[in-house]
Design a binder for these strands. Structure first.
Lengths: 228, 228
DNA sequence: TCAAAAGTGTTTGCAATACACCCATGC
DNA sequence: GCATGGGTGTATTGCAAACACTTTTGA
């Protein structure tokens, strides 16, 4: 820090929360109840408090705006174009997270008229530079998915092989061969086959699996190439 | 942005500049000429101006502190622990870059008593949380190197296959088999064999190569797995 | 002629790909 | 019994890994 700043600026956080539901990848948006950009859909966000670490700030903001609590978010990038926010200079730090929508109750909170999940195929025009932030996050997710396991956070505890295949297909926007996908996935030893099957489906019931948390975490560190 | 902030905070930028020289990976540090932490070695950094985009700010700061001009830096992460900086709350955005030290003239500038390259095996204790920022950057570099080509920015225009192997070895801290390394590298079509050889070496002169910029950029986008 | 680094090929095993049919269940 | 998705195996091909000797050059 070689020089003193001549003016102060403000710092905010915006959250891109991904969820997987109905075989579709979604993000969580809220509708602004205050100016600027009243009524627009936007990423859940807010200002950082002066006595608050970044991660805690992100969690608080997400909770306040959408009611979603207690999730692990990861920083992705700072966005600081001079005019990205009207009237004053606001630099924002983007965070993202993966969650299973079924586990959370969405309740619009501070400054929000509404909050809901949007299919990534139908994201509206968002406030400020939020479309850019969202696209950046999606890009990160698409890269990440090829180098380390995802799914633990997005899927229910017990799931079928078809569901995890649909997840990968939804994230990457491509389709996989059933047999090769399963071979590759099972070879990692990432999944544990449960002695349980689906219930109440109008066709042959699929076997349920869960993640082997230990191997999952190992692969997070080490990385792999998911090439399908 | 659902809520107004109650207090303003300051924002800085810190740069982790990697270079490759004498078969070693290095980073560029400067010695602080002002308080706080006078005389300590630190990452080149400074405060963001209110009318300045982040990238431009990073370039300006690097230039002012070390004399290094006109390089492309990439954002890596924001660091915002409440007490990371003494006296006041300062959140900093880390940037990193890869350059060939031979192409730049280091001249300690604003607030710097000295500026020089340090082998990554001998990084001193740095100011504030700069060791953490540096390690974060090193980690990113080590991941990146496995998924996309590096070297263009770090190596001289013409180089030997052995030199690029040494670069990968220095970055990753492991050794590769000569034959397999060359096979893999050449198979990418990334390198163009020049009709020139090393000169003035006391052993068999090695062939020189350069990057095929077009394929280099393609691979940057697409990614690959460097598994050796 | 010696020292120092450059340069080169083969074998083996595993993983990626492409591809089609039978199975279990509920209605 | 039919519609719906579940579940499985093989043949081919290419890449990764392991491994040691000869060549060139300058001093």
């Amino acid at each position: 820090m070689a020089e003193e700043s001549n003016k102060l600026q403000e710092l905010s956080i915006d959250c891109v929360i991904f969820g997987f539901e109905d075989h579709q990848l979604k993000i969580l948006l809220y509708q602004r109840a205050i100016e600027p950009e009243m009524d627009q859909w936007a990423l859940p966000g807010g200002f950082i408090k002066i006595d608050e670490d970044l991660d805690r700030s992100a969690s608080r903001i997400l909770k306040e705006v959408t009611g979603v609590n207690n999730i692990y978010m990861q920083q992705i990038n700072a966005f600081g174009a001079v005019n990205r926010y009207p009237q004053k200079r606001v630099i924002t730090i983007g965070f993202y997270a993966l969650i299973n929508p079924g586990n959370y109750n969405i309740v619009p909170g501070v400054g929000a008229k509404a909050a809901q999940w949007f299919d990534i195929a139908q994201i509206p025009v968002l406030s400020f530079d939020h479309n850019e932030i969202y696209l950046y996050a999606l890009n990160i997710l698409r890269k990440k998915v090829r180098y380390e396991p995802i799914g633990f956070e997005l899927l229910p505890e017990k799931f079928t092989l078809t569901l995890i295949q649909r997840l990968y297909e939804a994230v990457l926007g491509i389709e996989f061969d059933v047999r090769n996908f399963r071979k590759k996935l099972l070879k990692m030893n990432l999944l544990i086959k449960l002695p349980e099957k689906q219930e109440g489906v109008a066709h042959r019931a699929a076997n349920l699996y869960k993640f082997d948390k230990k191997i999952y975490n190992e692969l997070k560190g080490k990385g792999f190439m998911f090439d399908l």
